[in-house]
């Protein structure tokens, strides 16, 4: 953090207070009644003025009670894609007292949306969900979030900032159609690369004796025990191809974004079809693989492109 940022953080007011629209009108009416009381000397107007001013003070005190003792824990989403809503969860907790009408908002630029909870009780962690939307892909440094309340009268929004440093990784935007890439030039390596081998995960083809050096995980233990020797299962191998998606190094700006989105869509589609997908972003390379975990690795790598520093 730079010196100025630190200085600004040090001198920042511990709470923010903002008028709502009705709060502004209320304030104007209060000023008007005050002027009327001073001008006419009408004691009942003084009484009304006193009540309105006291309500403002009480509003400040009650809202402070709501935001003061609240602890927030952020529960990051499994997957967040740019330009579409995703669920961010927050765990709110109070040691004592009650909190009412609390809104939670991320202060990171580019993230919109907020969570709302009506009541938070002491000692009962409350999970609330916010529908956030990220404008772009990439990592979002979530340094602070804002807890605010309109309680009790909706005249002012009392805000407290909480430091909760974490990083939210937003995957590229979804919904792009693109042409299928050519098959990878390199032949599949190892047992898994030979489509004629009967070591797939498809339908059962038969049993045969286990040869030396073969994978013991293929042994059918029940039949082996029946026949007294190690028998392995042979299954039909599904047609699987390998693709390595590559990203040109020199891409920047809109072109880079578009390419990332295309590659993300391609990777998802290929992985859905059972193919193995790898990624080459120039500085970073992921070997072809499959499954949900691999898809996440590919999308994460695409999300980081351009933000490595």
């Amino acid at each position: 953090m730079s010196f100025w940022k630190r200085l600004r953080a040090r001198w920042r007011a511990p709470r923010g207070l903002k008028f709502t629209r009705s709060g502004r009108t209320f304030f104007v009416v209060t000023i008007g009644i005050g002027l009327g009381a001073l001008n006419t000397g009408n004691n009942l107007l003084y009484l009304v003025l006193g009540l309105l001013l006291s309500l403002i003070v009480v509003s400040g005190v009650l809202s402070e009670y709501c935001v003061r003792d609240v602890k927030v824990r952020r529960l990051l989403p499994d997957a967040a894609h740019a330009a579409e809503p995703f669920a961010m969860r927050y765990e709110l907790q109070r040691e004592r007292g009650l909190g009412f009408a609390l809104s939670i908002r991320e202060l990171a630029p580019g993230l919109t949306g907020e969570a709302f909870v009506a009541v938070v009780r002491a000692g009962e962690p409350t999970i609330v969900r916010a529908q956030l939307t990220a404008a772009r892909r990439g990592p979002y440094p979530l340094a602070e979030l804002e807890v605010s309340t309109l309680f009790p009268f909706g005249l002012f929004a009392k805000t407290r900032r909480l430091e909760l440093p974490e990083t939210l990784l937003v995957f590229p935007r979804r919904g792009f159609a693109c042409v299928e890439p050519p098959e990878s030039g390199g032949a599949p390596a190892g047992d898994g690369g030979n489509p004629r081998r009967r070591d797939g995960t498809g339908d059962l083809l038969g049993l045969r004796e286990l040869s030396h050096g073969e994978d013991a995980r293929r042994v059918h233990w029940l039949k082996s025990a029946t026949y007294g020797r190690l028998l392995r299962v042979e299954r039909e191998r599904e047609e699987r191809r390998q693709f390595v998606l590559s990203l040109a190094e020199r891409l920047e700006g809109e072109a880079l974004e578009t390419r990332c989105e295309e590659l993300a869509a391609l990777a998802r589609r290929l992985l859905d079809r059972g193919h193995e997908v790898g990624l080459d972003t120039g500085g970073h390379r992921i070997r072809p693989g499959g499954g949900p975990g691999h898809e996440r690795r590919v999308l994460s790598a695409l999300a980081w492109v351009g933000f490595e520093r």
Partner: peptide, 17 residues
């Protein structure tokens, strides 16, 4: 909570008055 707050507001109004 609001009832208590309002009671304080009324007391404050009296003090102001």
């Amino acid at each position: 909570r609001v009832g208590t707050g309002t009671a304080f507001a009324v007391a404050g109004a009296v003090a102001f008055f």
